[in-house]
Design a protein around this nucleic acid. Sequence first.
DNA 1: GTGAAAGCGCTAACAA
DNA 2: TTGTTAGCGCTTTCAC
Lengths: 342, 342
Amino acid sequence: MADTARRPDHRYGNRPTMKDVAARAGVGLKTVSRVVNGEPGVTPDTVRRVQEAIEALGFRRNDSARVLRKGRTASVGLVLEDLADPFYGPLSRAVEEVARAHGALLINGSSAEDPEREQELALALCARRVDGLIVIPAGDDHRYLEPEIRAGVATVFVDRPAGRIEADTVLSDSFGGARTGVAHLVAHGHRRIGFIGDRPRIHTAVERLRGYRAAMAEAGLPVDEAWVSLGSTEPARVRQAVAAMLSGPEPVTALFAGNNRVTVTVVRELAPRTRPVALVGFDDIELADLLGITVIAQDAAALGRTAAQRLFRRLDGLHDAPERVELATTLVPRGSGELPPA
Amino acid sequence: MADTARRPDHRYGNRPTMKDVAARAGVGLKTVSRVVNGEPGVTPDTVRRVQEAIEALGFRRNDSARVLRKGRTASVGLVLEDLADPFYGPLSRAVEEVARAHGALLINGSSAEDPEREQELALALCARRVDGLIVIPAGDDHRYLEPEIRAGVATVFVDRPAGRIEADTVLSDSFGGARTGVAHLVAHGHRRIGFIGDRPRIHTAVERLRGYRAAMAEAGLPVDEAWVSLGSTEPARVRQAVAAMLSGPEPVTALFAGNNRVTVTVVRELAPRTRPVALVGFDDIELADLLGITVIAQDAAALGRTAAQRLFRRLDGLHDAPERVELATTLVPRGSGELPPA
DNA sequence: GTGAAAGCGCTAACAA
DNA sequence: TTGTTAGCGCTTTCAC
């Protein structure tokens, strides 16, 4: 009986609203709002009555409505490449922790390294009116974000720089890391060193290759272009590159792997071979210590944390020029990078 | 001049609204709405005018308002333990893919294995009016979700069952997997087998221990309680457990590790030892193939995908009784589990 | 200490 | 084909 009197238009599966709570408690709507938000100026007795009504009805404030009115969503968006990649898990988690400390929720999205999907995702997050956006770029043109940034969406780029716009950016020192890693191989006597990296569209791939070339040049070593391979990190592609570099009359004696996925495949590929090949990989990998893999480690969590902190400082009203932070990498020698040339 | 005439109360950093677009294009508000949503019944010429205004103003629809009106947020929440754990990355990613296929965004939150934080997060997501919720429980009492579920929030539990409420659940066969793994060790001649698992509050830990006991019992082997250790997955705690089981006059000759983190620590702990100890771990690990670690593999992505599919079927109106799905695990022999007793 | 009214930006229902 | 009105559930403002 009573039920038939309900608003037929009620959304959210017939959830009670503040109005319902107010009616039940016999108070005004605003009083319920005050109680729900812990605002002062309500008699303890009234508070109790309202709370009882809330309990009885199973009321929970609709934050969508609140957001609409207040203009801030207390949420930030994170567009990354692939949450399943062990590099991005810790990064995302670090962002989440900072967001949590600021009372904000995190909306994640994976671009799958597709620029269109990155844009689609980022704009969808903007339509949700996230307060801020952290982007690990897949594309190299971010002018599509200009209106959003102008409209007040704080935006920070991580791991790779923004394309064609000025924005806060937090990077690892890819160039320096790769240079250090390759110099390490050179120091152990290698002269023919191969570089297997990610697609040339990706900034870090290019920077790391630049680091490789710098180290080789500084050692006075020539680079045979057959020693350089950029492309997809698909195992098949990487395997082929390894095979090519290790065949012929003058095979490389050492390899530099441009990121974690490349390293994994290279390690698998080298394992069954008899002739030892030295290896340094960019990015640390779980259990790399047990496998004795020498790496250039970057701190994914620090990247995420730094970016998120910057974001929230912007949201707190910071207004200076966009900043570019570069985090140092660490050479972790574990054996594979210290092998002498075969 | 013109600026001073602006509404002083404008939120979202002075973003244009449909009203602004309508004014600029010289059309009605609803016409803008039609164009933005691609609804039919608008003259191509009008569409063009509206689109020009949208472009010029940098308008983007405010989905918060849309959500408030439509009652569906096109977003789902995922409460998991720790996004930085390599087990949850793929799971989360799989959920995201299904959500994306249904046009929904994913809001992630990590409970850090803290029941209170799980509840806080889940309820915050409900306040955002996510359409559905996927929970990897940290706690064992989910009655706090009852009002939400009754109010229409589709809810699916993954990896561990819900506590004290009926709900859709997607699990891996922890009991069967552990039993298979331990039986495998028995088949290779072991009689004294240790079990090192997660905290006893965690369902999977208990189930896997149960599998261990079942396999031992089925083989007619006694279980010395000194061979069983449940607790935190902190490396220190695990190391201590390993040390204890491998010392004394009758040390275990094989170990069963209750999850990925335990396995990693056990492997590190066993590596420097001379006496070989057989090992089977629950959960697969990257590079475990190269280290020759025998594991009981569960498919994290399949868990996430299955749960998300169930969730969206609920959102599409499915109304049958809560279902419990148990996904099979796979024994992957790689050497460590096939070692004979020392 | 409390409540009524207005309005956040959008969509549904209806009118023109 | 297009526009007007009402209202989603909340917070803000201001009056009582």
